[in-house]
Amino acid sequence: MAVTVSRPRLNWRERMYLPAIVAGLAITLKHFKNMLLGRTKVTMQYPEEKWDSHLPDHYRGAPALVRDSDGRVRCVACQLCEFICPPRAIKIIPGEIPSTDQFAKVEKYPEEFDIDMIRCIFCGMCEEVCPEQAIYLRKDYAITGFTRADMVHHKEKLLEIGGVMHGVVLKWNEKK
């Protein structure tokens, strides 16, 4: 259906355009002046100013593995995160814990644990699905590298980012 837009009839002053042009120029000049005087709020100047201290608690940054209070890698290589990860960023090669070990009853540990940070979409599914609370999304967001291989976080790197997480799940302790 054709719609006819009725144009307003302009009076002679409006048809001259000049008053409107001058008004427009005044507006842009005001913005220019405010910027010069530093009255305008502008974008954060990234490398110098960072918003690290303003990051909210629920911020989802890079996923990372954590150790428990005993220094043990919490991950039991159940591979649930590997299955749930939507872009399939996680690759785990499980290994067996020798029977002489203090934590022999855990049975499995991740021999290799890679997260391809080019693929990761920071969705947080891995954190949600992990039965051991072994993987957390930390607040690191500046993940860079010169090659694709640089962008894969190996186990050491993941543990380094993750650090130690106290409490929560303590079922593998000797006492239990």
Partner: peptide
């Protein structure tokens, strides 16, 4: 630079 200032950018 001027266009940035007019548009509230740096």
């Amino acid at each position: 630079r001027v266009s940035a200032f007019i548009q509230d950018r740096r």
